[in-house]
């Protein structure tokens, strides 16, 4: 048994060096060399070069002239992550969904609210909404920005990400990128001046 333990100790030490230090460091080295932007968290910079978020992580958008991301069970705090984990039969969940639906209905012209806008995502950091959910917000954003609704529709259309290989996953829009593109558009009136 003593010999077994000595061998075990050796193997754990060898595994720590090989798979706990060498392997992650090799991956880090190659990743930082080949895909440095992604390896560091897909951090998006503004015009001044300051980091304003990650392209993969949802951030809070409360202002009504922006597109809104999905509700977050962790309040968009990216130091953590998680879902509501609420049971489908729980009063807590049904109350939350009802409240969100009423709030959405107050600003939306749609007869029905897309389900992902009133349900919390699994990570709390879902960076996407469906294309439908973006189109549903278009009238509000267009009105508040004093823009033609058609321009907003076109902007959304340009930002719809396709399914992988054409059939894996869902059509979706990255909210941060869409809002950034929105800010980059000249507001009506500005273009004339």
């Amino acid at each position: 048994m003593l010999k077994e333990l000595r061998l075990a100790l050796f193997l754990i030490a060898a595994m720590t060096v090989l798979t706990g230090i060498a392997y992650p460091l090799v991956v880090t080295g190659i990743a930082q060399m080949l895909f440095p932007w992604r390896a560091n968290g897909s951090i998006v910079l503004d015009e001044a070069g300051q980091p304003i978020g990650s392209a993969l992580i949802a951030q809070r958008f409360d202002r009504p002239d922006y597109f809104h991301p999905r509700p977050s069970a962790v309040d968009y705090d990216a130091q953590g992550s998680g879902a509501s984990n609420a049971a489908p039969s729980s009063k807590r969940l049904i109350a939350a969904i009802t409240a969100r639906t009423e709030a959405e209905r107050a600003t939306s012209s749609e007869r029905k609210i897309p389900v992902e806008m009133v349900t919390a995502s699994a990570s709390g950091l879902d960076p996407h909404i469906s294309a439908d959910a973006a189109y549903a917000q278009a009238p509000r954003v267009a009105r508040l920005r004093n823009m033609a609704e058609g321009d907003i529709w076109k902007l959304i259309g340009d930002h719809v990400e396709d399914r992988s290989l054409g059939f894996i996953g869902e059509l979706r829009v990255n909210v941060l990128e869409l809002n950034r593109a929105l800010d980059a558009l000249p507001r009506q009136g500005e273009a004339v001046r």
């Binding site: 609420a86 969904i97 029905k112 349900t119 699994a122 879902d126 869902e170």
Partner: peptide
């Protein structure tokens, strides 16, 4: 008044 075409989206990613 919710469009549930996408399915049961509570706790799922888009």
């Amino acid at each position: 008044p919710i469009d549930q075409m996408a399915g049961n989206m509570e706790g799922k990613e888009t």
